[in-house]
Amino acid sequence: MIEIKDLHKSYKMGSNSLHVLKGINFSVKEGELVAIMGSSGSGKSTLLNILGMLDEADSGTYFLDNVPIKGLNETKAAKYRNKFLGFVFQSFNLINYKTALENVALPLYYQRKNRKERAEKAMDYLSKVGLAEWATHLPSELSGGQKQRVAIARALAADPKVLLADEPTGALDSKTSYEVMDIIQTINDEGKTILVVTHEPDIADMCKRIVHLKDGVIVEDKPVKQIRASQYV
């Protein structure tokens, strides 16, 4: 599903540049649930953004579902993001003037689905994260956990091939974190490929594989025995 080879990325800051990713080799098969760990500044978000086509690598190759991702123009990148990728951010990034349902329906709008279909699908995914009754509420009326569940529903609405989550539980307490992880595991059980960036070892243990980043390279990549979040919920 994901295939990267010798990926490099530096940020230019004035005259000197900061080499953040220094040759990442990494592949993810369909249906995997991968945790990306590492200390702050190790390049986790940078890697995830490149995988999400939100940013571009300086060198190296990247195949997503056997499609080479290189030198895409903005319009093409937008199309691929819409078709292949779902994002979940630490700070939710919901549109504050749209209701939960409208937020979830937004990726479908960019897929040019008609209004009725959008509403139906969005409602399906909201039910899936247990928020059907909150459909008409604005993000400001939802708790952090609920917001993140709306964000997950939104990421799933376009039926992407890969779900990318950058510290999805970073802003949540442990109980809500487990609720969110429970949903992520359920989705993964249904076959969706998911990458989760996290700091927290207990969250990482709820995945099936942990990748450790340090100073821009992968220092450890091991499968783990998955701990089910449902037992804590």
Partner: peptide
Amino acid sequence: GIRKALGASP
């Protein structure tokens, strides 16, 4: 930015 991440073209 959110719209773009969700697939809005420029």
